[in-house]
Amino acid sequence: MMNLLIQHIWGVYIAIYLFLGGMGGGGMVVSYYFCCRRNDNKLAVISAITSLIIVIIGVLFLMLDLEKPEKFYLVFVSPHLNPHSMIFIGSSILTSFITFGLLFVTAIEFKWPSFLGKIISLLPWYGNRSFTSAMGILASIAGFLTAFYTGVLIGVLKSAPFWHTPALPLLFVASAFSTGVVGVLLVNETIGIMAPKSERHKYQEYCSILGEWDAILISIELLIIFTYIFLFTYGPEEAEASVYLLTTGSLAPWFMGGVVTMGLAIPFLLEYWHIFSESRGGKPSCALPIIAAILVIIGGLILRYVVLSSGVMTIFLPPS
C-alpha cells in the first residue's frame, strides 16, 4: 500500500496565472508576425496590447494567491535573494516581457487616440522601424520564455512525478501558442467587424491563416498529451494515479471532457472544416474558427487547472 497525496495548495488562481501567462506570451509572438512580417500595424498593436494586459492580469492573480502580496518586491530585492528559484527567474522574465512589450507597442507607427497619440509620438523611438523590429523580436523571445516558464515552474518539482517531465513545459508551450493564436484571432475578428467593407477580405484571410496555425498547434498538443498520458500509464505509481485521476477518476470530466474533447478535438474539427470548406470555394466566414477559439481558450484554462490538481505524491514507501 502506498501513501498517496494529491497536491491541493496551488489551485484556481495559479492555474489562471499560468494560463494567462502562456496566452499573453504566445499572443505577443503572433503580434510580432503581423507587425513586422505582414506590416499590419493596427492588428499588431491591438494584439500586443491585449497580450500585455492578459499577462498583467495573470501577474495580478499570482499576487492574489500570495499570503503577503504587499511584500512581492522581496522576490527582487530580498537580502537573501535566491537567483536559482524559478519564481525569481519567472518574475524576471515577466518583467522583461512587459518592458519589451511596452517598448514594442509604443514603437509601432499607429493612429493612437488623440491624447495618447500625442504622448507616444513624443517618444524618441516612435515609428523607428528597426527599433520596432528589434523590440518585437525581444518581446517575442520574452513571450516564448514566459510560456515556457509556466511549464518549467511546475516541471522542476520532483515531489510529484507526473509534473517532473519534459512533456509538461512542451505541452504548456504548445497550449500557450494555441491560445495566443486564437486570442489574436478574436482580436482580428473584432477589428474586422469594425473595419470598412473594402478591408474586410484582409481580416478574413488572417482569420484563415490563424485558424490553420491553430489546427497545427492543436495536433501537436494532442500528440504531446497522448504521449504524456500513455507513457505514465507505465508508472511510476504516483504518476499512474495522476493518469487515473485525469482519465477515469474525479478529474476525468474536466480533462477528457473539458480539455481533450471540448478544448482540442472539437476546435480542431471546426478549424479543419473551415479550411476544407474554404478550399472548396465556400462562402468566406470566420464563424467556425471563432467558435473554435472560444473553446480553445476555455480548454487551455482547464488544462492548467487539471495539471495542477493531478500532482500526486508519495511520502512513505514501505520497506521491501
Binding site: I9, W10, L66, E67, K68, K71, F72, H80, G311, M313
Partner: peptide, 13 residues
C-alpha cells in the same frame, strides 16, 4: 521574508 507564494509547500516531497 516569506511572501507566502507556497512554492516550497508544493516542492516538499
Amino acid at each position: 521574508m516569506c511572501i507566502g507564494c507556497k512554492y516550497c509547500v508544493v516542492a516538499c516531497p
